[in-house]
């Protein structure tokens, strides 16, 4: 289970490092809109190896949607803007029009920003001695920050904490993902991404339940 044993630059990373990388990838995509440069990287096929791996791992449908989205964007005159507008529609407007990427908007008595979930995240970060990038003026329960933490937990071998955070995310990511599917977007990129994240977390959680000593 402890996957953090460092082997000298393997072609195939250790499972925990893989998870760390994958969560970081999600975090990147949820943190901000893709810049023109980032989008060009995608257009240049940089994501293809990852897509191949993900497709083989059982996310073929989501990968297909995301690839389709990238291909569709290639033909659009304002590709970056269109994808940015998709990002905005999905995550940046108010809670009714968007799937807000904050745990507090799904959990707790009142679905406000900066709810108890946000406080819990801050406390958690503090326990790990982690801080937030001050250039990222966001609430700590933002999905991207939670995924960053998940990535860090995987990378630093805090397996139990990692499991705990996966479970915590699963309390609201399914609703979040479902909401994403209802938003009218130009391309299916973000809805597919959210489905993929949700399934990934669910698979992970299911596996862990099976592996747990009680079973």
């Amino acid at each position: 289970m402890n996957a953090s044993t460092v082997t000298p630059e393997p072609a195939e990373a250790a499972p925990a490092d893989q998870r760390a990388a994958l969560y970081a990838w999600f975090a990147t995509l949820y943190a901000r809109e893709l810049s023109e440069a980032q989008l060009q990287t995608w257009f240049s096929g940089a994501a293809e190896p990852l897509f191949d791996v993900l497709a083989q791992a059982g996310f073929a449908a989501e990968v297909q949607d995301m690839q389709g989205a990238i291909n569709a964007l290639r033909d659009l005159p304002d590709a970056q803007l269109e994808l940015a507008a998709d990002y905005t529609m999905c995550f940046l407007l108010d809670v009714k029009s968007s799937a807000l990427p904050y745990a507090s908007c799904y959990l707790g008595e009142h679905k406000t920003l900066f709810g108890p979930e946000e406080k819990a995240m801050r406390e958690k970060l503090e326990r790990y001695g982690l801080g937030l990038d001050s250039n990222y003026p966001e609430a700590a329960d933002h999905l991207a920050i939670q995924l960053e933490l998940l990535s860090w937990l995987a990378m630093t071998g805090k397996a139990l904490d990692e499991q705990e955070l996966v479970a915590s995310l699963l309390r609201w990511v399914p609703e979040f993902s479902q909401k994403c599917q209802t938003i009218v977007t130009q391309v299916a990129f973000y809805p597919a991404l959210s489905r993929m994240l949700c399934r990934l977390l669910q698979e992970e959680s299911a596996a862990l339940t099976d592996l747990s000593p009680q079973n």
Binding site: V6, E9, A13, D17, A20, A24, G131, L132, S134, M155
Partner: peptide, 21 residues
Amino acid sequence: MKKIWIWLRNLFCKPAAKIGL
């Protein structure tokens, strides 16, 4: 590779940023 990864993720390189109160 992992080192590069860690460098990319930038976790231990930046100084602590104070969150302004």
